[in-house]
Amino acid sequence: MSQTSVSLRTQIGQVQLKNPVMPASGTFDCHNAPALPFDAAILGAIVVKSVTLHPQKGNPPPRLAETPSGLINSIGIPSPGIDVFIQQILPVYTALGSPVIVSVAGYSANEYAELVAALDGLKSVEAIELNLSCPNIRYHRMPAQDKDLLQECVAMARGATAKPLWAKLSPDVPSVGEMAQAAEVAGADACTVINTTSAMMVNIHTLRPMIGATRGGLSGPALLPIALAAVWDATHHANIPVIGVGGISTVEDVVAVFAAGASAVQIGTASFYDPMAMPRLIGELDRYLKDKGIASIEELKAKIRQSQTPSAEEV
């Protein structure tokens, strides 16, 4: 039984989106990049590249190394600083017609609070994503890899805004579930799962690390199964929605990440393999639901819950 029209409307806590597909932070740009050949208003939301409190240049080149099933990057965070971002860059995104999610990266819990406070009064900011994979200057650890630090950063950010807060988690921890739970307790409204995983490539001629910063983050196809396990863990430990990210490139990947428990998806490296990946996936998801006779994202999630509930015979 196929469906003639489907609704891709998506709810992530209080945030309502027209569909569940959005770019992953740092993998899409409408400011310092040539004009798009598609209408950005078709995207469920736009997540911007992480912004820091003060301007910074990012990591020295070379910043990229390709692996057989993904990409290692050590871009760091080239950032104009939050003030210039708000004055000059945010308006460019607001004009595009999709809800804007601002990703922020702080080097201390106080910085997260300051960043979030700067965005708090802005109507054009739909939600704030906390990139918790920045080294903390005092403890030299990433909040995403240290439960106490993560709770401190999320709690400080929570105290500075009433806007929806999404905590972005790292796969490089013993339990993503525990980190999701910690984020929920500290006041996050949703978790974005996952950031890249730590990785390195060697230049076989110089015998040195291939990228300037020695190691970087692995993204792309290699990350999908890691993301699936992490999304599953997060949704089974915490009672807040999860946005799934990592290696998603086909509509089957999108459905798999939903099956692991996600309420929406972010697309990163797939946009480098094919810059039309996001518009393509929105179209393919619509067709997938039609073909399966599923009327909406809500119905897809209900169907997933149903198929994962043990039947009477199995119990």
Binding site: P61, L64, F272, P275
Partner: peptide
């Protein structure tokens, strides 16, 4: 320079003293 996207999205192709893309 190694390019992942070619369209200004990945910020991987920074070069020169000012790290232009």
């Amino acid at each position: 320079e190694k390019m992942a996207c070619g369209i200004g999205w990945c910020k991987g192709c920074a070069t020169g003293p000012e790290w232009h893309l």
